[in-house]
Nucleic acid binder design. Sequence first.
RNA 1: GCACCCUUAGCUCAGCGGAUUAGAGCGUCUGUCUUCGGAACAGAAGGUCGUAGGUUCGAAUCCUACAGGGUGCACCA
Length: 562
Amino acid sequence: MEEISFAIKDVCKKLFDIDVEVILTRPDEQFGDYATNVALQISKQLGKNPREIAEAITAELSHEAVEEVGIAGPGFINIRVSHKTLYTWLQKGIDEAPNGVYGATKLGSGRTVICEFPSPNMAKAFSVGHIRSALQGWAMYKLMSLHGYKVVTDNHVGDSGTPFGKWVVGFLHYSSNEQLSKDGINELARIYIAITADIKAEKEAGKLALAEEVQSWLQKLEARDPEAVAYSERFNKISFDHMHHVMERLGISTELELGESYYVARGQEMTDELLQKGIAEESDGAIIVRLDEKSIETPVMLRKANGTSLYATTDLATIEYREQNFHPEKVFIHTGQEQAFYFTQLNALAEKASFNPVINHLWHGLVDQKTEDGKREKMSSRKGVVLLEEFLNHAEAKAAEHNKEGSEADTKAVALGAVKFADFTADRKNGVLFDWESMFSVQGFSGPAVQYATVRIKSIRSKVHEESEDVSLYDWQDEHGLLLSLIDYPKLLRELHDSYELHKLAAYLYDLARSFNRYYEEHRILDAPEPERSAKLWLIGVVQTVLEQGLDLLGIPTPERM
RNA sequence: GCACCCUUAGCUCAGCGGAUUAGAGCGUCUGUCUUCGGAACAGAAGGUCGUAGGUUCGAAUCCUACAGGGUGCACCA
């Protein structure tokens, strides 16, 4: 493919003495396999009619891969490539792939990035609101690994700060040892919702008693008061066990799990250091760093007036820890969009503290739900969230309804396919609509639709036992479209390396699955004469590989049967 | 008030290095069909791409203004 770009580039140089980058796009099928608009691009500086330029270029262009060339509209150059050339390109792409993984690159060799996910707040219930950072983060980890990076995964759990204080106060006021032992994580979630609501009500009434009690427990914890530490460890244990359980069901894990509490002490030290250097300053009893010179009006706060730490305090220490231990080129952090401003502050703070501002905050839209009257609104913990566990149970029940042939493991794979794929069907920045009706779709643009295509291919290939024959004489006419799609795969992964737009992978996979289904309707495979049969089996094998790998990048397993 | 994100078919969304007739899925309607796995395939209906300007040979795509929705703007995370 690149060879054609270069050939056209050379022609432009030769005819017009002009250097242009020739980009080949994939036009509508009827126009050709590849197209370029160079003639339109350069027509202005040449002062010539673009069609004339296009004609001159096509007259001069000769390359063995170009079978047919045409000019359309105002001056597009459309190119058709022979079937066999496409086969050669695909075969070459596969043969030259690093570690034998088609689409992989070595872009990241010798380089390190950190992927931070799912980083839930341990005091809140692990709800569907957390699923996005978990899924997006895992996919980024997979993608960057495929490009040869050393990827450090870190679950930066929220196990410190104000929520901890809320937990203790909530427990003392509304709960008991018996209830906590009995209901575990659900009791903790209930406590947190209750105390949060009461603090809000109290504030509206102009009082602060509960809020102050919360802060005093927080102070005790940071001072390592034994009673406070005991509470913290007890609650954390319950919450951590639950989180690990859910992560296991989701099929994700992280190498590190250094929560905020790990960084509190060092963060406080660093705050003092910044104070001494004059970078931080006191304001209304709190310690802040002004970011005006970075065009950020709101200062970032490192210590509250009561002496306790904040998010920024622990995050600053986290930045130091990571720089010292891993020297990451980038740190990908997945949270909801509400934290977008904070992370611009944090990068600015990092620079002022002489660290590299390496954080790439890949924020996502929030999870909405439908109200009873069909309106769309934010899912809030006040009105009750949907627990991730409950969500997964529901997905599995739906998958089981459709599963006629597969095992229990296959049912789980399909459930994950539905749930995870749905998170990649639109741009990450869009909100997603949580809807019990449509979220577990197994039809149309969905994970199970892609899984189904791979399962069909597996089934066909499992019936073949003989060695494949030499396919060098095959013409590849029927496979033209599939070959083009498969050749696009490495280009797509290369693009995602820079854009992080994982929804494009989901779209690609679905499109490939559709193409395969159409192909499968029209052409017999097992009954075909040789060498056609071997050729077709090889090709659907490549389709299967790409589909399975692509799904794996999105964290989706492929069932054996379904 | 300021900043960021968003507004495309009834619904959920692609498309935005400007370019040939704006695409999917769901839903609706109609076909294929005793299948190398029908969780399939083919087709129909459905859109003046929020509004108004601007740049251009050409704008859903770029620029400006406005309207509507979301998010954020120091002692929360």
